[in-house]
Design a protein around this nucleic acid. Structure first.
Length: 230
DNA sequence: AAAGCCACCAACCGCGGGAAT
DNA sequence: TATTCCCGCGGTTGGTGGCTT
């Protein structure tokens, strides 16, 4: 039998001190990442392995890009969220130097509001019923089709992406938005960060798909969506 | 100047998948 | 085959600082 992850009564919680950070950095520089369970003791830290892993991945890793998100990063997050939903680790994987936690926080604090201001429901990327303005009626009536199995409109219960729905909504809304001088979401994937090949379906997703039929939607549906976005 | 409110973000918690036993 | 544990993920919380009243 294995030991539990950590003896919780013996571990520190809360903010990390500079000394703790340094111990973690030094240890990982020497021994590399991994073995989070044994790392704290080996590194002389009174933390649980989970806490060490989080601190390293979200804050201490040398390749982390800190600071504000660029506009193209924002656009990319919005587009990927429309495709993938709250799969923050997958979204962050397409944004070099960004962590899932950072992307999630940024979404919740900035991008959700931004979309809502534009009259787009951030949960499903459709036009909201409570619009700050009115889009044309035909778009609205067809665009609010309820998906009872999944709040995410682009992913139905069968694992396919209802991209046409969202795209027509977004496009028609954007037409109106642009005519009013409001920001453009720029739904052209091809213009996003060059260093992050987005929809050459990532290897890791391919592998996941092979093992997990539920995840098939990532690769199967990405291509037609791209075509429509273009 | 103080109190209240809000936004941001680091960190924690609980859960699920998969590997190890 | 069943059980246990590790790892990674997404949701949520709590501390902090800035802004408004």
């Amino acid at each position: 039998m294995r030991k539990p992850c950590c003896e919780k009564q013996d571990t520190n919680k809360g903010a990390w001190s500079k000394q703790e950070d340094q111990k973690l950095i030094d240890y990982i520089k020497k021994h590399g990442e991994g073995c989070w369970r044994t790392l704290p003791e080996a590194a002389g830290l009174l933390r649980c392995g989970k806490s060490c892993r989080l601190r390293w991945i979200n804050y201490l890793r040398p390749d982390i890009k800190r600071g504000n998100f660029a506009e193209d990063e924002e656009d990319l997050i919005i587009k990927l969220h429309a495709l993938l939903g709250n799969r923050w680790s997958l979204i962050a994987g397409r944004l070099p130097g960004r962590t899932d936690n950072e992307v999630k926080n940024y979404w919740n604090s900035h991008l959700r509001r931004k979309l809502m201001k534009m009259g787009i429901d951030p949960n499903n990327h459709r036009l909201s019923r409570k619009l700050p303005h009115t889009c044309n009626s035909s778009t609205t009536s067809s665009g609010l089709r309820k998906n009872v199995n999944d709040d995410h409109p682009m992913i139905n219960s069968g694992g396919d992406i209802n991209c046409d729905q969202v795209i027509s909504d977004s496009a028609s809304c954007l037409e109106n938005e642009n005519s009013r001088g409001l920001p453009d979401l720029n739904l052209d994937f091809s213009s996003s960060i060059a260093s992050a090949p987005i929809f050459n379906v990532p290897d890791e997703l391919e592998k996941q798909n092979q093992n997990d039929p539920k995840k098939e939607l990532y690769s199967v549906s990405a291509s037609p969506t791209l075509l429509l976005f273009h």
